[in-house]
Design a protein around this nucleic acid. Sequence first.
RNA 1: GGGUCGCUAGCUCAGCGGUAGAGCACUCGGCUUUUAACCGAUUGGUCCUGAGUUCGAAUCUCAGGCGACCCA
Length: 506
Amino acid sequence: MSDLRETRLDKARALEALGHSPYALSFAPSHRTAQLQQAHADLAKGEERAEAVAVAGRLMTRRVMGKLAFFTLADETGPIQLYIDKASLEAAHPHNPDIFSQITTLTDAGDWIGVHGTLKRTDRGELSVKVSDWQMLSKSLQPLPDKWHGLADVEKRYRQRYLDLIVSPHTRETFRRRALLVSTMRRWLDERDFLEIETPVLQSQAGGADARPFATHHNALDLPLTLRIATELHLKRLVVGGFERVYELGRIFRNEGISTRHNPEFTSVEIYQAFADYHDMMVLTETLIATCCQAVCGGTVIEYQGTSIDLTPPWTRATMHELVQRATGLDFNAFTSRAEAAAAMQAVDLVVPEAADSVGRLLVEAFEQRVESSLIQPTFVLDYPVENSPLARTHRSKPGLVERFELFIVGRETANAFSELIDPLDQRRRLEAQQERRRAGDPEAQTVDEDFLHALEVGMPPTGGLGIGIDRLVMLLTDSPSIRDVIAFPLLRPEGRAEVGSDAMG
RNA sequence: GGGUCGCUAGCUCAGCGGUAGAGCACUCGGCUUUUAACCGAUUGGUCCUGAGUUCGAAUCUCAGGCGACCCA
């Protein structure tokens, strides 16, 4: 039984009885509140200004004292106070002597209302709209969260994001910054002749990354399909088709665990530039991210969870071998067998997983265990083992490695790029090796995409490719500790409630 | 997958084996310069769910649900 809701419904009915719908069709504001605050900053305390204005927004607080009331009305740009004086409101409505008690008793915090009035700065210095008329725009039937604790329940903040947005300016700011980052990135790419082309989300063969896909089904074709785990293989087909600079900024789906850094659906941008290599992509990466940071944060030195991060280019470049050697003393170039590498790792207390079946995979293990989390300032980690990078070109001078970098910031992988593998025969061998691992039981190993290989045989120019995790970048630029803070509606388990599913139906 | 913590009124929380509590919100009364308005009165509960221990469970135990954080 919800008394609060019933009380508010009674007020909605009372409005209807007075001939006013609790759900208006429209309203025409003359200003946004921030405009008024700015335009009348010069109005002195206690002064009035006879300019007629109309504002609309959500009622946030109400303070009624006898024959005078102060409400706070907030629109998207911020709050403004309403000054509601019984005598002058009644004077404006000679045929409705109840208008003051109507506005004070039929409204609640949370209602959307529109008001007409003039401007007044109160004796206490608060710019206010002195109300001459009001209209209910939308009656709220549910109470707002606690007016000064806000939404402390983290779960509710994610499940009912609309409440979080109403009461948390910081949350609103996070999503504004996210939108600004994305639009800045698109503009930057568009200005440099990169073409955004949408590639399929539904695919019969998910490829382009080591990840498990979501499975779905197309009824009319009776066709099993998966959601994409990357945009890579289709964007490369577009490069084969002659688009020399392409990108796609969009949603990726990976059927994996949930953590403060992982959401099953997330946003990436993949960028491909013909005739470029991974060195070019490093410059592109640091320039692009620094540009976005400047736009979103107003500078390239920012604070993340109490640590100063300097995103001013150029950023540190170091090979994975160098970094691992610096952190562990182990020179992986010197190892000639897995057994030798494994023994050396155990000697310095590194874990040696069964699945890491080569010197290269052990190198990556050592990197993840001892280096990754220490890369706080932006760092390009270069030259990965060929086994882990089936779509990257073999290194021009270092056997067993590929021309690949990953970008780490605050210990998190934030971007990944290659000199792309364009040799169709080498690509076939690499994908077949992946397929072999898959048969051996690795569910994340890639498959052989024959049409992609055919496209490479038609001929792909030398190309640099780059992927950036947008969510992690937004986390960085909004000082957010969890990916859920930067995704408006993160995936959560459905809330437990009375089952009305197939069981109950028998 | 493992560990730790949490779940009590609409919101924020206290209570930790002996009658279910506070502040705010809501309702009513008062109040023409408030902005966490104030003063007074009232109302409001599946203490996450289930089982167990006990004379007695919000409290202890076990299982489950949901979440947060840490680890893999």
